[in-house]
Design a protein around this nucleic acid. Structure first.
Lengths: 240, 240
DNA sequence: GACCCCCTGTGATTCACATCGCATCTCCGC
DNA sequence: GCGGAGATGCGATGTGAATCACAGGGGGTC
């Protein structure tokens, strides 16, 4: 089997072992069989662009492996990172359904495996398989939900510190492994990228981290961050 | 026929004359008939709260007549208005589909007519009518799309002036009537509410309007606003 | 080991905006 | 026509964070 970019390609969704964990992929056999015939399994290297904001919607990208950075960008080059998509997520879904241009840009962070489905074929598939259509509605609801959280964070925060605290808390709950008293999380992003996630400048993020470390709220161990005082973070996320 | 709050109640969706204009409502006869049996036609006075952010999702609210203010609110009472929903829009849809709590608060601005459908019955309806399910997906895509625009405005703007300009332009394109060179639009909102839409303070909005008037870009005639220099507004929406 | 590029850390300066305080202004009920 | 409440207008003041400028660090490649 070909393994470009060091990926183990999953050729068939039917044989995919991770299917049950993924919200969209766990379809009834008939639908899955039909999906199998319209999808194109593809692989991308790190840093590849799946689609660009403003482009006409060609179709959907089901992320099987790897992570994808979703961002929007202003005319003057300022970037806002909305989220880092994980396997199981369907990218470009809302644009494909509505027929409007993609509303954001998707760029791979790692080497990725992706199942692409053309717009027309996907729409036909949805008409034929109502369970899949429900899954799509669920996915879209999820996306809308996280968009609302983003709006809340951007629009209702009083300070950059508050937004950073919220982001760290969100990350710590997602990396459920050691979600106990002192969660530790891999900082896969640079200060610059974190700044782009919370809509501030890189320097501010650096200063905020310095402050958090000085106040013993977090502790850096290489690229992992140890949250030593979750309560203090929560307090920051509400006020200040 | 009863007409509470001065509304002409549309009793049956089948007889509704505005159905074709509304994205969700224009369903095939069989689905519409079925919808008819599960919906509750209700009327609300001005200022009524349909649902509150954080509440468990009881079901969907199809807005037939009147306008509804959709907002999110922080613990300290700061409010962000996301949009003013118009007839044809389905409210509480994503929360109802996903089963998560409502992500925002819906409050009527005018007397409103609303068709309510309970969550369980709506989900059953969706399973039985795949065309309706597609409509739901379209509605959700629309919502996601406008959420992305909101994020863009909040996260990528450099100044409050830029956000106000964007808002005015959006309003002027929506009120398509005189969308020509000098669009005029009804200012149904107070400065306070406009401030809550773009995430600034009331005083800033007042000052910005004063500045726009001084620079001959807009002109107030009672509660209607005349946009005299659309090009200047567009320039403000990009830079500054 | 030397080089270079990108990331991090930090100070100084500037500025837009929030906030407070108060003076109108306008609409509406009585 | 009168009074009050909410909406608007504006000055003064403080401050959070953007911006600029530069000085290390660290991890790659050659």
């Amino acid at each position: 089997m070909l393994t470009p970019y060091g990926l183990d390609i999953i050729e068939s969704c039917l044989a995919c072992k991770m299917r049950a964990e993924h919200i969209f992929c766990d379809l009834p056999p008939a639908a899955l069989q039909s999906f199998e015939t319209i999808k194109y399994a593809t692989a991308y290297p790190k840093g590849a662009v799946l689609f660009v904001e403003g482009q006409a919607a060609r179709g959907i990208f089901v992320l099987c492996k790897g992570r994808v950075k979703l961002s929007i960008c202003s005319t003057d080059g300022k970037t806002l990172i909305l989220k880092i998509a994980e396997p199981g997520e369907v990218l470009g879904l809302s644009a494909t359904v509505s027929g409007k241009p993609y509303e954001l840009t998707a760029e791979t962070v790692d080497p990725c495996q992706v199942n692409f489905v053309k717009r027309e074929e996907f729409l036909r598939f949805l008409k034929e398989h109502s369970e899949a259509c429900l899954r799509v509605a669920e996915q879209l609801s999820d996306k809308y939900n996280s968009a609302c959280r983003e709006i809340r964070s951007l629009g209702l925060s009083h300070s950059a510190g508050e937004k950073l605290a919220k982001l760290l808390l969100e990350w710590s709950t997602k990396n459920g492994e050691a979600a106990k008293i002192e969660p530790r999380l891999k900082l896969a992003l640079t200060h610059e990228e974190i700044a782009q996630m919370i809509g501030t400048s890189r320097e501010t993020v650096t200063r905020l981290f310095a402050d958090l470390k000085k106040r013993q709220i977090v502790q850096a161990k290489g690229s992992t961050l140890l949250i030593r005082n979750k309560a203090a973070l929560k307090a920051m996320a509400i006020t200040q």
